[in-house]
Design a protein around this nucleic acid. Structure first.
Length: 191
DNA sequence: TATACGATCACCT
DNA sequence: GGTGATCGTATAC
């Protein structure tokens, strides 16, 4: 069962932290890929100078003003895509950037048996989109439908010994005081 | 219409 | 640590 709108319609920092440990699901043809989310970042409102919506409502940022649970996919540096999930109530521009997923698993329609994929780099926002074939065609996609692209929450979400840590966001040095917000969250395994 | 630059990555030293 | 690739978007003219 895909996570529903109620999950995404809450405070962005809460959604971001609770997405850690969840499975990013991607169905391509008869193949399903399941990738555990290990790092995210929050981008919250027009006052967040690192958020694309700090420029206001434009054609590009329109999706962030829309329904929670939809995908916001944009191209960066002319060659990579980044996947975000829109959060909070409609009209409030905010989203969670999926920065990294762990070793991916996949099954093909016939086998229904999960197996790990080796040698795939999914430890960056551009890399995971390249691997999961996420591009602007999925911009605006409703991720609560459980088709093509969605999120599943396992039970338990966090495994033994795991905890959530907060750090500064990456690549937003231009964002004045907002660059120092501790809005990047990762799974941590050390004690 | 023209220009500057970015929520990145891979490869180099 | 530093840099080039490469193009959509916002902004300036």
């Amino acid at each position: 069962m895909a996570l529903q709108k109620n999950f995404y319609r809450r405070e962005t920092l809460t959604v971001a932290k609770q997405l850690l440990g969840c499975f990013l699901m991607r169905k391509i043809g008869r193949k399903v890929i399941r990738a555990r989310i290990t790092e995210v970042e929050a981008y919250i409102g027009e006052d967040d100078l690192a958020c694309h919506a700090s420029k206001g409502r434009t054609k590009r940022t329109e999706i962030m003003y829309g329904e929670p649970g939809h995908a916001y996919v944009y191209m960066i540096y002319g060659m990579y895509h980044c996947l975000n999930i829109v959060t909070e109530k409609k009209g409030y521009p905010s989203a969670v950037l999926v920065r990294a997923v762990a070793n991916s698993c996949e099954y093909v329609h016939k086998s229904r048996e999960w197996r790990e994929i080796h040698g795939v780099k999914t430890d960056g926002p551009g890399k995971l989109c390249r691997f999961l074939k996420i591009d602007k065609k999925l911009n605006g996609w409703d991720m609560t439908k459980g088709e093509k692209l969605w999120i599943d929450r396992p039970t338990p979400r966090l495994r033994s010994g795991e905890k959530v840590i907060a750090n500064k966001r990456i690549g937003v040095d231009y964002a004045k005081h907002c660059r120092d917000y501790l809005w990047r969250f990762s799974l941590d395994y050390s004690k």
